[in-house]
Write a protein that binds this DNA or RNA. Structure first.
Lengths: 189, 189
DNA sequence: TCATTTGCCTAAACCCTTTAGGTAAATGCA
DNA sequence: TGCATTTACCTAAAGGGTTTAGGCAAATGA
């Protein structure tokens, strides 16, 4: 009997690949066991339960996204930074649709606290340093950008913008132009 | 043996209530059968399968949302209309979280074509008549508004904006102000 | 080398989905 | 009103996912 060498990390990594291959909601402990050619019950030594696997994939995706964001933001400011971070989310979702879906998972407060969630808001806040916003407008703007990035990417991935002119790339560019203009002319109360 | 009076319509209606009660992803044919105190197999005379139920709930939610939107828009224009439609989405999601989640379901092209989806984009387009945008900027703006509404509501429901100042209502108001300002000063290419 | 720990296994219970085929209630026509 | 048909719900069963309990063999380490 040769051992498969399962670890929680490897399982979550493979789960992320599985998610990208077949969709996040098709990720099951059973499918993962099949991938390792191992019996289902064996995974339960490494995973508390099915939810645990999904949460793990979500946390992995949030970290990867934050890492990419940090890299993209390095040395950029203003609109350049805005565009770079926005494209990180969009590109990641296209390259890793399953992981991106995982990143939208509703986390428990504990999991959320341990996640890269705060890095994400920090990065958005960093972008706003290139614009002239004071609190609490900065927070409003962070939330707006988060909403647009997430909303656009998820509608685009759902096919909402395909099969109609103008193409989605064009809209994306113009929306980033518009957001930049808005941040430069943020309306006072 | 007293009959329960099941019909596809009643099942989907009850499925929508179930979704609001326990969450859309907890909606199962089994749970629905329990609610009617009927055996599971009995539902399969009215429902093709489990997916069919979920799609039905999604279509119901999209119709309800479109109906509310149409009512809200009647007699309004400009920022007034913008705010009204935005609040329709946000309020609906709060009142009917399960249905709102259902409305995000990825539909097949046929289901999507038969859905109220086009009514939604038409409503957003109607709002833009109060602003001075020509094609293709109108389409870009429709997509932006859709992204913000959907993105904000889904992040807010996920708890993203709770437990931090300023409160979410304040941000929502300021975002609508900002979008109004942006639409009035949409940047040229 | 032998004891301990670790990794994967079998077995079994439970829940959800879906289909096939049956019976009783409702309906509708003479 | 009586009977045939249709309709509504049922039982049974197969297939798949989740999860726990308990077992044996491989790896580790004294």
């Amino acid at each position: 009997m040769v051992r498969a060498g399962l670890t929680t990390t490897r399982l979550i990594q493979a789960g992320a690949e599985l998610a990208d291959d077949v969709g996040f909601d098709q990720v099951t402990v059973s499918a993962l066991a099949r991938r390792f050619d191992v019996k289902v019950a064996s995974l339960y030594s490494h995973l508390k339960n099915s939810q645990d696997l999904k949460t793990g994939i979500a946390l992995l995706a949030l970290e990867e996204l934050a890492d990419r964001g940090a890299t993209a933001l390095a040395g950029r400011a203003g609109k350049d930074a805005l565009t770079a971070l926005a494209n990180v989310y969009r590109d990641y979702a296209r390259e890793h649709p399953g992981r991106y879906a995982a990143a939208q998972l509703r986390l428990t407060p504990e999991a959320a606290a341990a996640s890269a969630g705060s890095r994400h808001s920090q990065m958005t806040r960093a972008i706003l340093r290139g614009y002239d916003l004071t609190e609490p407008d900065q927070t409003h703007a962070v939330r707006l950008l988060g909403s647009v990035f997430h909303g656009y990417v998820s509608l685009e991935m759902g096919g909402g913008f395909s099969h109609s002119a103008p193409d989605s790339q064009e809209t994306w560019t113009r929306i980033l132009d518009a957001l930049d203009a808005l941040l430069r002319n943020w309306p006072a109360r």
